[in-house]
Amino acid sequence: MKIKPFSYFPFFLIAILLCFFQKNVWADTPIIKIEIRNHLFIPSEILIPENTKVKLIINNLDDTDEEFESYELNREKVIIGKRKGIIFIGPLPAGEYPFFGEFFPKTAQGKVIVK
């Protein structure tokens, strides 16, 4: 089957997008550590600067797995029990971004405050 020239178009679009938004990639990434203990996020409130990408290292000290989930941050990741997980968040505009542990949502709650 012959590929028509216009079907390359989307790939051009991706390439352009990638070039355009490349600038954030090499910036220094602050690291923030969160622990999960007894189905709690400790600390449960974290403060990050505006428009900055941040690396969250989540250390699950419980035996049970937990899923870090935030609709506002668009993040979702399973953190295995007794293991660490890495999640990149941001850059974000100022505001509050609640997150929770989807497996134990009543206790595992917290929020990211962007200032």
Binding site: N38, L40, F41, I42, P43, T107, Q109
Partner: peptide, 8 residues
């Protein structure tokens, strides 16, 4: 809501 004493 707050966390202390290992509980919420």
């Amino acid at each position: 809501d707050s966390n202390f004493l290992n509980h919420r």
